[in-house]
């Protein structure tokens, strides 16, 4: 498809999605909201982890920091400034994590991100109990579901746009090369550490913003609510199902899985995490490269 045509089509779809809350019941706006949130999360996650193959298990650490920043600052600062602060804190945290682990082999990064959410959750709890003497905070912002939805939709579109732009730039080429062979990439003139760090910070900042925008949904926030490890897990599984190496992959994975999870969590609230885990193992087994690659594979085999 020609690029201008694809853009026109994307704009039409986006407009239709933006208009949807005016015509559908509130419940479905809520579903759309959650789904859009995960599309943004999975796409932002894949931005860094897809091409470099550095599996980040810390999605919820950034997501939670975003939400919690809003909880702390929503009565102190005007909303746009609160979002700016959240993004800044997320970026700074990503910079520290990245600087300390991205120079080393990929496995150190995975291990570090694995416990990061728990670390941040415990540290925030400790701070609240011992320093500010508050546990749990209220978010009073004049937003209804659709307002949050529109913000998330805009963020998801921006995330996809960033992902598209990077994929076409020399940065995208460099990332793929780094995922294949860091030594060769470095000898071709690529500053491997700097590029990894840059992408990780961009990805983490977007994830932080998703958390910040969603914060008003909860009204009441405490660390155990916003640092729920299931968020990291669902993001990962969605991106993998769709294919983390492709622009549309995370979206293709996020939409059906979100609907499935929504149904599962209502139908089997007690066994949700077991089903989630089994599904995840199945996906790793059957579609290591994601649905899109699988489809291409099948189409390729269909040809003589």
């Amino acid at each position: 498809m020609k690029t201008p045509l694809a853009f026109a089509l994307a704009a039409v779809v986006l407009a239709a999605l933006a208009a949807a809350p005016l015509f559908i019941p509130d419940y479905w706006t809520g579903v759309l909201l959650g789904m859009t949130g995960y599309v943004a999360l999975a796409t932002a996650w894949a931005l860094f982890s897809g091409p470099t193959r550095y599996v980040s298990l810390a999605t919820v650490a950034f997501f939670g920091v975003g939400a919690y920043t809003v909880a702390v600052l929503n009565e102190v600062l005007p909303y746009p400034l609160v979002l700016l602060c959240a993004g800044g804190i997320g970026a700074a945290m990503a910079l520290v994590v990245g600087l300390s682990t991205l120079r080393l082999a990929g496995v150190y990064f995975v291990i570090f991100t694995f416990g990061l959410a728990e670390l941040v959750r415990q540290t925030v709890s400790w701070w609240e109990v011992n320093v500010t003497y508050t546990m749990g905070r209220y978010v009073f912002l004049p937003f209804e579901g659709r307002h949050i939805y529109w913000q998330l939709l805009a963020l998801a579109a921006v995330t996809l746009l960033i992902s598209w732009a990077i994929g076409r730039s020399r940065l995208g080429l460099a990332l793929k090369a780094i995922g294949d062979d860091e030594t060769v990439a470095a000898h071709a003139g690529i500053n491997v550490t700097r590029i990894k760090l840059m992408l990780f910070v961009i990805s983490a900042t977007l994830i932080t913003l998703v958390g910040a925008i969603q914060a008003p949904r909860w009204t009441y926030i405490e660390p155990s609510i916003v640092f729920n490890p299931t968020v990291s897990f669902m993001t990962l599984i969605m991106a993998l199902l769709g294919g983390a190496m492709r622009l549309w992959g995370p979206l293709v994975g996020a939409v059906p899985l979100f609907l499935l999870f929504e149904w599962l969590s209502v139908s089997f609230p007690d066994h949700f995490s077991i089903i989630l885990g089994l599904l995840f193992i199945l996906i790793v087994f059957v579609m290591p490269q994601g649905v899109l690659a699988k489809l291409e594979d099948l189409r390729g085999r269909g040809k003589p």
Binding site: V55, V107, L236, H271, S273, I274, L276, G277, I281, V284
Partner: peptide
Amino acid sequence: EVDSILVTFGLLFVIQGV
């Protein structure tokens, strides 16, 4: 390494769920 990290991450949720 990547595959085992992913699969055992899934296993973690299964054991925890049980």
